[in-house]
Amino acid sequence: MSDKNKVIRKAFADVQKEETWINEQCAEGWALVKIGVGGLKFMFEPCQPGEYIYRTEIVTLSGQKKKDYFGFSENAGVELITNQWWNMGLTYFRKKASDGPFELYSDVDGKIRQHGPLRNLYLFAGWIFIVLYILSAINIFMDILLFDATFKSAMASYLWNTVVAKYNLVFHVFGLIVTPLFLSLGYRYRRNVKHLKEEKEIGEEMSIMKRTKSGFRWVVFVTVIIFIMAFILGIYFGLNSLQ
């Protein structure tokens, strides 16, 4: 059986594109059955071409409510493929195409509920980074401007030799890359939510709206990994330089 299966490693920036791609695979006779850690590894089994319709969603529910929702979906003939914390709650569902059209959300409110959490997440992450930057900038200016040379060099060597200094360096380089990303995503979802609310004032029909969805969740996964690595490296070098 396993030699008949197919594994594809692929990174998607946009979850909507990912969903389309998964459905294209299914149309070619490959049904998604499992996702590897990080959401970068897709495992497929042979199926009838176009046998299923796949849909993805960020599920923000937790605990019993999440179980209820998945149980509810299951009873409605919707199969849960996977829902993992390391995928930021991105959840893959599928339903037999012979059952007719399949959408998770048929109303505007549902879409708003879907995009709101993403907006909050990305904006929060982005602005946390900005605040940390400002704090560290103030720190550096204080160092340079306010203290005399002896104190400064003592201070500098102290800072440099601590775990924090090493950790901060990695944090700064990495933060420089992800901050604009988080903020642009945050504002993209804010625009989406705003647009949806405007649509809602006119009417409730969903069909006129573009299905724009979340992206870049794998960036968050990579962020976590790099932070952990940076932390371990920071402790390692920090301890070394103290000796």
Partner: peptide
Amino acid sequence: RVVLGTGTLYGA
């Protein structure tokens, strides 16, 4: 004409 999404129905 109206096909409710499972997510929509659950929320409703």
